[in-house]
Each structure stands twice: as structure tokens, then as C-alpha cells.
């Protein structure tokens, strides 16, 4: 394509409004946080905050929780999302209705659904215990939100339920962008279903899987609303992610610079993840 000056101008014009918006709303606060993390009460203190961060037991524990949370919930969402997308791809009676139902969890307000989940997991009046008891899967009501491991299970369940539709939508769009001719061509060569899936579907879905992976991971790293409502970080801090600790540090302890330090750390963490994903999964062809 000819790289004329006009083309450059046109391109710049196209991205200008977004540019301004991003600079104002996103960049400025981030820069401010960066500066804050190196200061204490308006005095420059270098990397003291970061050193404190690495000695902070509560931070280390919240980091562990966040990583564990991502490690379990994200692959689960990708897998389920793929399965659902494949099924929704088929033409069948009531497909429209099924598709709408599958989008539903994503559409419901997070904080409100978290309150609902809290009630579902209640040990006395909760539906979850009730069903399990009736099905004889458990003998006594379990305190789902009261025991660390069970509570962790609950937050993952709530997250997977809410966020899998996101993956489903993206993968569905991806599936629908695959030209049917490719399948016809390869069937002529005698490929069976599994081979078709492996040789055409999966590779062509890669960019979409990558998008889903990156966005889900980043959003999981910053998870806040649902956990705050569901467990408040408990029991005993066993479900507390980084963002909850940041919230407490800034708004309850009023330690702004230390809070900024934590934020910068999680930013770097997210960057590392994105970098790793792109390095190992990014397809040159689709890169822009």
C-alpha cells in the first residue's frame, strides 16, 4: 500500500479522538500513581515502598490467592467457552433461545449477582446446600463461605459462571469467521471430524482464543466486585486478591503511596503475562 502523506494524516485523524480520551482518562491517573509510588507524604523516598512490599506477608498472600484464582478459573473458562461455542455453532431448534440464555450470566450486574450467590451458598438457607442434601451428595450442611477451601471454590464458581459467556461470544464469532470452503476442501481429502477440528478450527481460532485468554487473565488479575461482596476476602484472608488489599490500603488506611506501589506491581505483573502469551501464542499473521 502506498504510504502517502495523506494516508498518514487520515490514519492519525482516525485515531485522534481515541488517543485524546486514553491520554486523559487512562494515562494521567497511571502516571500519577507511578509518581506516588516513589513518594511518601510528598517526599521522594526511592524504592522504599517496593522493599516494604516484598516483606509484606499480607501482600504475598494476596498475590498467591490472585495467581491461584487465575490459574484455575481462566483455563476452565476457556475450555467451557470453547465447548459451548461449538455447541451453539450447530443449527438446532431453539438455538436462538439457548444462545440468549448462555449470554445471560455476563449480562447480570456483578455486585448484585454476588449478593445472590452469597445467599445461595448460605449454610442454613442456601439453595446450594439444599440441593446437595436432597441429592444425598453431602450429609450435613456445609459452611461454604466459612471455610477457606470451600470459599475459594465458591468464588471460582461465581467467576466461571459469570465470565464464561464472554469467552463463548468471542469464540463463537471466531468460529463463524471460518470459511466453510476450508472444511469442504479438507473433507474431500478424506479428513474425519477430529482432524478437521485439529487442522482447521483450532488454528484459525487461535487469535480469538488469544484475545479471550489475555482479557480473561487480565480481568481475573484485577477481580474485585464479586469477591468483595461474596467473602470480603475471608475467611482469614484466604480469598483476598490483590485488588481488595489495594482498596483497603487506599480507602481504609489512607496510605496512598503504598497503594500506588501495589498498583504498579500488579501492572507489571499483567504486562509480564501479556508478554508471555504473545510470545508463545501470538500468530504473526494476525498481529497488527
Amino acid at each position: 500500500m502506498p504510504k502517502s502523506f495523506d494516508e498518514q494524516k487520515f490514519g492519525l485523524l482516525l485515531i485522534l479522538p481515541s488517543f485524546i480520551l486514553l491520554g486523559l482518562v487512562a494515562l494521567y491517573p497511571i502516571l500519577r500513581n507511578l509518581i506516588l509510588s516513589f513518594t511518601e507524604n510528598d517526599q521522594f523516598i526511592g524504592i522504599k515502598n517496593f522493599i516494604l512490599l516484598f516483606q509484606d506477608e499480607r501482600f504475598k498472600s494476596s498475590l498467591f490467592n490472585t495467581l491461584l484464582f487465575c490459574l484455575i478459573s481462566v483455563p476452565l473458562q476457556l475450555f467451557l467457552g470453547l465447548v459451548f461455542a461449538l455447541i451453539l455453532q450447530q443449527r438446532f431448534f431453539t438455538r436462538g433461545f439457548v444462545r440468549t440464555s448462555v449470554f445471560l450470566p455476563w449480562a447480570l450486574p456483578t455486585a448484585v449477582m454476588a449478593v445472590a450467590w452469597k445467599w445461595i451458598f448460605n449454610d442454613t438457607y442456601g439453595v446450594f446446600n439444599d440441593i446437595l442434601l436432597r441429592l444425598q451428595i453431602i450429609k450435613e450442611p456445609l459452611a461454604w463461605l466459612g471455610k477457606p477451601d470451600l470459599a475459594f471454590f465458591c468464588i471460582i464458581l461465581a467467576e466461571v459462571w459469570k465470565c464464561t459467556p464472554f469467552v463463548t461470544v468471542i469464540l463463537l464469532a471466531g468460529l463463524q469467521s471460518i470459511p466453510p470452503e476450508l472444511y469442504e476442501a479438507i473433507s474431500v481429502d478424506g479428513a474425519n471430524t477430529l482432524q478437521r477440528f485439529r487442522l482447521i478450527t483450532l488454528p484459525l481460532l487461535r487469535p480469538f482464543l488469544l484475545v479471550a485468554l489475555v482479557f480473561r487473565t487480565i480481568q481475573a488479575l484485577g477481580v474485585f466486585d464479586s469477591i468483595w461482596v461474596l467473602t470480603g476476602g475471608g475467611p482469614g484472608g484466604s480469598t483476598e486478591p490483590i485488588s481488595l488489599y489495594v482498596y483497603d490500603t487506599v480507602f481504609r488506611y489512607l496510605k496512598f503511596s503504598y497503594g500506588s506501589t501495589m498498583v504498579i506491581f500488579s501492572f507489571i505483573l499483567s504486562l509480564i503475562f501479556v508478554f508471555i502469551f504473545y510470545k508463545f501464542w501470538g500468530d504473526r499473521q494476525i498481529e497488527y
Binding site: V25, I30, R32, L221, G222, V246, F267
Partner: peptide, 20 residues
């Protein structure tokens, strides 16, 4: 520009609250 887009989504929402 791509970098800006990236960092807009890498931060936990909470931290934009007060500056915004």
C-alpha cells in the same frame, strides 16, 4: 497507541477512582 490501549486495561479499576 497500542501501548496506551494495553495499559488502559491492565490496571485494576479502583486506582482510577480518585484521580478521575
Amino acid at each position: 497507541f497500542q501501548f496506551l490501549l494495553l495499559i488502559a486495561c491492565l490496571f485494576p479499576q479502583i486506582i482510577f477512582l480518585v484521580p478521575l
